[in-house]
Amino acid sequence: MEGVFDPAQLRTFLAVAQTLSFTQAAHRLGVRQSTVSQHVRRLEEAAGRQLFSRDTHGVELTEDGEAMLGFARSILEANERAAGWFRGTRLRGRLRFGASEDFVVTRLPEILKGFRREHPEVDLELTVELSGTLHQQLEAGKLDLVLAKRSEERPQGQLVWRDRLVWIGAEGLRLDPGRPLPLIVFPPPGLTRARALDVLERHGRSWRIVCTSGSLNGLVAAARAGLGVMAHTDGLIPPGLVPVPERAGLPELGPVDFVLLYGERQRDTATRAAAERLAEAIMAGPVP
């Protein structure tokens, strides 16, 4: 075992770990898939362990791969701190960052805490909103960087994480197939709301809205009370809620991408530099 890990290989490893796809990792990094495979193979050789298990069904992290996640983030963060020190430059200015409410109970608070610790002279302003609202604010020049669901109308963005939307509700919730589906939803322009209603309409499934709230906590409370079902990201299901069983016959909601988007009207180079540095911190490991 060499004991020395190449930062480029670690970044490739993290991209594969986030997407669980060599193809998606290559797309994100802007390199060939063969390069991704080569980086992972060399990192596994340096570690002396297999980091991914690969078969016809997909890619999964091994136990050693899970351990490497933490080490990779720490190594890359240390490299970035060292580079910043010897560059002799300190980030300054104001950064307006918008994040989808999906992430407030994930690793995002930890990432933002680390960013504030490393860059205390950046005035970070956080906006937590619906993904649709964040897209609108970004286009209006009110935000510099956004972490949100990918919009079908705005397919651009740097892929951070791919998952799927599922129907969730309280455990033991019973749905009457002969009655309209009771829905718990965000208000417009929520992207998850739009997807859920569109899918139900296309499958001819009648529905009625039993709860609307701009707060994820409000929706979760209603779902825990057994008022109905809500569409939600599979990897971010809140405690006390479970996926609706397949026997309920609800249509599949499809995949969902979480992306980073930069404001097109960056106010100055300092803002752009701060946005890029925060984006790097978010990309350094899976958000959930």
Rank of each mutant, 00 (worst) to 15 (best):
T12Y: 08
T12A: 05
T19I: 03
L20T: 07
S21T: 02
F22T: 13
T23N: 04
A26G: 15
R28D: 00
S34A: 12
Q38W: 12
Q38K: 12
L51I: 05
F52Y: 09
D55L: 05
T56W: 04
E63A: 15
D64K: 15
G70N: 05
G70W: 05
A72M: 10
A72E: 01
L76D: 00
G98R: 09
S100E: 01
F103Y: 14
V104Q: 10
E110N: 09
I111H: 10
T127R: 14
V128Q: 03
E129M: 10
Q136H: 12
A140V: 04
A140K: 14
V146C: 07
R150Y: 04
E152R: 15
E153N: 11
R154V: 04
L159A: 03
A170S: 02
E171C: 02
G172V: 00
L175K: 02
L181Y: 08
L181K: 10
F186T: 00
G190F: 14
R193G: 00
A196F: 09
R205G: 00
S206D: 10
I209S: 01
V210W: 12
S215H: 13
G218V: 06
L219I: 01
A221R: 12
R224Q: 01
L227A: 01
L227E: 00
G228M: 06
G240Y: 09
L241E: 00
P251D: 00
L261Y: 06
Y262L: 03
G263T: 13
Q266P: 12
D268G: 08
D268F: 09
T271L: 06
R272Y: 07
R272D: 03
R272F: 11
A275W: 08
A279M: 04
P286S: 11
